[in-house]
Design a protein around this nucleic acid. Structure first.
Length: 371
DNA sequence: GTAGGGTTAG
């Protein structure tokens, strides 16, 4: 239902302060308009936004609605930047109820303002809407940067949100573009943001990109954490640069970074993948010296790695060790080993394993193949 | 938020 026109329309403060350049050609850029604008119009807009009266009422005059331009809104947002919730409500009011076509600048001002107040969810949501406009990562970054500089923002998390958004939408390479632009402007992403990006790159098998990005950021002072080192080790392993993978771990250790068993498991898996199982076993044996313990993944990875090079007896020994330590082997490791033992005709060990498993209540599916 | 098990995007 449409609200009726106010009884005293002349009290609408906006009506008295319409911008002078109503007849400006539609092609004139907002920048040209800026200088000529009646400043009262914008400040009255701000008053209305902050005031108690109904926005619907104040903006019901079609003349006002039609003379309101994105650069006016930008100014109102800036004047209310300390109150991002209010600014957002106004922004949404215009967008939802007036179908107002906001400028990219308005989006960026609000995104930064919301982030400064830790209002990340609405900031992300705004960013998503902005990205629907199909801007290039370069364009979005430049717009964010302009407002970032203009308002002397204390937090650069708006840029992080952009990178995170690209990662979530599987646009990892666009995320890389943004991180590189950030670096050029001496803005460092959060370690968590970067880790999300690096893991996205690993998932999409852009391993060389992981190495490059890591170097670029460490060179400008970023301090990697265990997660970041793990992504590096994984990438190096996939690229078969096992020596460098080892070096990265040594480097992390010498820098006092507390690695978990996961990083070592990644290296162990890499070594197994390239048939360097004995080195992998060595890594596992050195874990206790670092205050770490081999876990299920360590053992299963090694057992499968040993099967790959037909070392079923050693695989069997490790399997026993892991069962003794109370781990229940994965179906994959179990089946791999059983199948190998069976093929080699080592039925004895195979049945030994079946009995051991019976004791802990696990029966491998592959028993069906052992008839 | 990082790891293993045949598994990979665009």
């Amino acid at each position: 239902m449409k609200l009726t026109r106010p009884h005293r329309p002349r009290t609408n403060p906006l009506i008295h302060s319409k911008p002078r350049n109503l007849c400006a050609s539609p092609n004139s850029t907002p920048k040209d308009d800026d200088e000529n604008d009646d400043p009262h119009f914008v400040s009255n807009l701000s008053d209305v936004v902050r005031g108690k009266q109904s926005w619907k009422m104040a903006f019901s005059d079609p003349f006002i609605s039609s003379s309101l331009k994105p650069h006016h809104v930008e100014k109102v947002l800036i004047q209310n930047i300390r109150n991002p919730r209010l600014a957002l409500r106004f922004f949404n009011f215009l967008g939802l109820h007036k179908s107002f076509n906001h400028s990219t600048t308005s989006f960026c001002i609000l995104i930064h303002a919301l982030v400064q107040s830790s209002l990340f969810w609405p900031a992300t949501s705004l960013l998503q809407t902005l990205l629907l406009r199909g801007l290039s990562p370069n364009e979005v970054f430049q717009s964010l940067l302009n407002s970032f500089k203009k308002f002397n923002c204390s937090s650069s998390l708006g840029f992080d949100l952009l990178v995170q958004n690209y990662v979530q939408n599987k646009r990892v390479l666009d995320g890389v573009v943004v991180v590189r632009l950030m670096r050029e402007c001496k803005i460092l992403p959060e370690v968590r943001t970067l880790n999300a990006l690096l893991n996205g790159l690993v998932r999409s098998r852009h391993f060389n990109m992981v190495l490059q990005l890591f170097d670029e950021l460490v060179n400008v002072g970023l301090r990697p954490d265990a997660y970041m080192y793990t992504a590096m080790v994984k990438s190096l392993c996939e690229l078969k640069d096992l020596h460098k993978a080892n070096e990265v771990i040594r480097y992390a250790e010498s820098n006092g970074c507390e690695l978990s068993v996961v990083t070592y498991n990644v290296l162990i898996h890499g070594l197994c993948k390239w048939q360097r199982v004995w080195e992998a076993v060595k890594i596992k044996n050195l874990l206790s010296r670092k205050g770490l313990k081999a876990d299920m993944v360590t053992y299963c990875t090694l057992v499968l790695g040993l099967c790959k090079v037909q070392e079923f007896e050693v695989g069997m020994a490790l399997m026993k060790e892991m069962i003794e330590m109370g781990f229940v082997p994965s179906e994959a490791a179990l089946s791999g080993l059983m199948e190998g033992l069976r093929r080699k005709g080592n039925i004895e060990d195979a049945f030994d394993l079946v009995n051991k498993m019976g004791e802990v209540g696990v029966m491998p599916n592959c028993l069906l193949t052992m008839r």
